[in-house]
Computed example of a mutant assay.
Amino acid sequence: MIAKRWVRGVVGGAVAAGVLAAAAGCETPPAPKAAPGPTGAPRQTPAPSRSPSPAATAPEPAPEPCPEGGVRLVEGSGDAVMGLRLEGYRLVNCGTDAYVLEGYPQVRLLDKQDQLLEVTVGHGSAPITSEVPAVDAPPERVTLAPGQTASMALLWRDRITDVSVPPVEGWVLEVTPKPGAPRLGLRLTRPVDLGNTGRLGVGPWRR
């Protein structure tokens, strides 16, 4: 009797162990862990590029107003040989009407302090030098339509004849184009350096 009970106990335990093992084999395995993400910094999305704003356009300078009388005096080109100076100046009709010139302009010089200089002004090249066509041409009538230009020439020598007399330099040219017209002033970039000769030759208006 004892042997039979022991056999049944062994068999029953084996069966129970088999059932538990089968039950354990039927359990659903756990889901795998997710793979770790990249360890670097998160990727930045580039910001949309902005087109450069257009550069601010510098305002154009306002045009110089036309002087009273409707004409403007402009410094021209010059020539210098052995102390002899020849400078050209232009008169521009910046008005709206025709401008008539005839003969010689009236000319005077001022220094850097705008003080009037004592200068002997004559028509033509004598007695400064021999004949110069730009200065010794005969006067003629010149009519300037709006925008047109006439010219005149000045002639002088830069020479020191007396060391006791200080040299003269004109830095402002004042011109009366014709009798009764307003006087025009022009600050020069090149002086009228007369030395101490004190003489200035003026040519007529030319087209």
Rank of each mutant, 00 (worst) to 15 (best):
L184K: 11
P30T: 10
K33Q: 15
P48A: 15
P48S: 13
T57Y: 00
D158A: 08
G95F: 02
R159L: 15
T189A: 11
D193S: 15
S130L: 06
A56E: 12
Q113V: 00
G40L: 08
T96K: 14
D97V: 06
V172G: 00
G170Q: 02
L20N: 04
V81F: 13
P127R: 11
P182T: 08
G78I: 01
V19N: 06
S51M: 10
C26K: 07
V15D: 03
V107I: 15
Y99K: 03
S51V: 14
W171N: 01
A137S: 14
C26M: 14
P61V: 02
A181R: 04
P138S: 12
V163I: 10
G37I: 05
E87T: 04
P138K: 12
G69Q: 03
R90K: 12
R5K: 10
E102M: 04
T28P: 12
K112G: 12
G198W: 00
A14R: 03
R187M: 02
P139Q: 09
M1V: 06
A3S: 12
P46Q: 10
E131V: 09
L194C: 07
V107A: 10
M82G: 05
G124N: 07
P166A: 14
V172H: 02
P30M: 09
V107H: 09
T197F: 00
V74H: 06
T129H: 11
I160D: 10
V135C: 00
A153E: 05
A21L: 14
P139V: 11
P32T: 11
L200P: 02
A150G: 07
